[in-house]
Design a protein around this nucleic acid. Structure first.
Lengths: 303, 303
DNA sequence: ACAAAAGTGTTAAACTTACACCCATGC
DNA sequence: GCATGGGTGTAAGTTTAACACTTTTGT
């Protein structure tokens, strides 16, 4: 980067500049880590086990929100970019390395953290669950996969002459064995002549820390939106070699709807490469294993 | 929002919690305000004046980067969400009210501000330029529209077995009367098996403050991407009543390519309503004025 | 008349959608 | 045999892209 050349006067100014004279927030990175999980054992011969979307949560061992569940995350350190904070904390807290990481929103509502003025950058993180069987960490916390379900519960529209207000309720359900967490998040989109604004409010919250219910819902929405748009993001949830059906399952789980196999395969064809490998022994025709076609990923058409 | 019920122990913990024990960054909101500007006078009878994309810059009256140009912005205050900071600062510095505002990136690279650890949330802001003729402000700064041009100068691909690296150079040119600013920003996209990362670096910088060259380039990219995707965002650059051709011009300016009129009109038809008004006196057939069709804006198909 | 912009119609190509159908396997 | 997932073909419908063409106006 080109260096800014400073005058003596500017240097003097900076020397006397006291940044601590102004009130400052703390900054954290919070990561919503998603993976496709195999839910339960194979129910019967030839029938594949159900797959579900999972999100990684940490049981808080300390105040505030002790014994509540929250997203992995932590405070930004000086001399690191916030993306590095995200990567570092993710590794420290959950041993997840090399995840796909993408910022999706900033959370700064006053009062969101009882410790004070703390704002958080939300990251969407995608991993192949098989590769990262999460270890319990130190005594302060333990990370675990929760099955996640987000349902759109209600939708109301108020349309006036030149403005509109659309309210959507999202029911967030998280579960792991006998632990069930739940929250209700309200989204309000306001459209006026030259203004558009979306606001979120947590109406109910059972067991989640801070405003993480809102962060999780918005992370899920970001994941679904990007899946619907290009589908590229879904590959980051897959292992190196995968069957086309498992890729389709991932799409279906995220989008919440069944897809037609022939059409899905045609759409994905340019972005995968057939390998000589295949999986057999499942009581039906062996499935060919594919890997992603790197060439296709940076072509403008897929972006 | 549901209130978190605290135990006496938790209250005690929070009372003793000293947030200032940790090092904290300062947080600012920086706004890239875009508008479609009329460039120069009508060149000749019947010929419409050229239109260009403009971005609002402020001449810095103080160190650091005194006399350089930067984006309007300012420090976040306690008890306000960062979106409120953006709105407040935009009004204070440029008198622009009710702009479309959307966060598009966070800028936290160490060393980006010589005053210390300062991170910035970037906002994309779109306004109708006719409505907001910018006033010069107090003596400390003055806001003015600059014509903006972003050209993709070079593109190199390095593809290996399971990874790829794509480098793009963006030439940013800003001008206003006799003032010309310029910068060269390098974008590096790295694709590896389970990782994708985009980095930016400012290679040249003539006259811009901080890392604002990078912020402006990325704001422009965000604007262009969203225009290509749905086109909805472009309406925020238009006045209440507009001709279809002016809407098309806005699209063309942002996308940097000519569009075919019949196809453009068909595509936009659902999102506009014809009014009885029209503009005449231009030496050619009068153009009907349209306004946006609010109903269409929150339909799922346009999102 | 004519240049400039406003606006419509027509067609081919590309892509999406839906559905019908066959294949291979292990018990 | 048969249930289950793996996999292909085809035709109808929709969207996009390209181009040719007509209309209206002020000087």
């Amino acid at each position: 980067m080109k260096k800014h050349v400073m005058s003596a006067e500017e240097k003097r100014y900076l020397k006397n500049y006291d940044i601590s004279a102004y009130d400052r927030p703390s900054l954290t990175a919070d990561m919503a880590v998603f993976a496709i999980l195999t839910a339960g054992e194979q129910p019967e011969y030839r029938k594949d086990p159900e797959k579900r979307l999972g999100v990684l949560l940490i049981r808080r061992g300390n105040f505030p929100y002790k014994d509540h569940y929250g997203l992995p995350g932590g405070f930004a350190a000086k001399k690191e970019a916030i993306e590095e904070t995200a990567q570092r904390e993710l590794k420290e807290e959950t041993s997840v390395d090399h995840a796909f990481l993408e910022p999706f929103g900033i959370f700064s509502r006053p009062g969101r953290d009882p410790r004070g003025w703390i704002i958080s950058q939300g990251f969407l993180a995608l991993v192949d669950a098989e590769k990262y069987r999460v270890r319990a960490g130190s005594d302060a916390w333990e990370a675990a996969w929760f099955y996640i379900d987000v349902e759109t519960e209600e939708l109301t529209k108020h349309v006036r002459k030149s403005s509109a207000e659309i309210t959507t309720l999202y029911r967030l359900k998280l579960e792991k064995e006998d632990i069930k967490l739940s929250a209700l998040v309200k989204e309000t989109r306001r459209f006026t002549e030259h203004h558009e604004k979306t606001e979120y409010e947590i109406l109910e919250d059972e067991g989640l820390a801070f405003d993480h219910a809102e962060i999780i819902v918005r992370a899920f929405k970001a994941l679904r939106d990007r899946t619907a748009q290009s589908g590229r993001i879904v590959f980051d949830l897959m292992p190196e070699y995968f069957t086309l059906y498992s890729l389709q399952e991932a799409h279906e789980i995220i989008l919440g709807e069944k897809l037609l196999t022939p059409n899905f395969r045609r759409k994905m064809a340019p972005y995968v490469i057939e390998t000589s490998k295949s999986v057999s022994g499942a009581g039906h025709r062996p499935a060919k294993l594919f890997k992603r076609n790197m060439e296709a990923f940076y072509s403008p058409s897929f972006d």
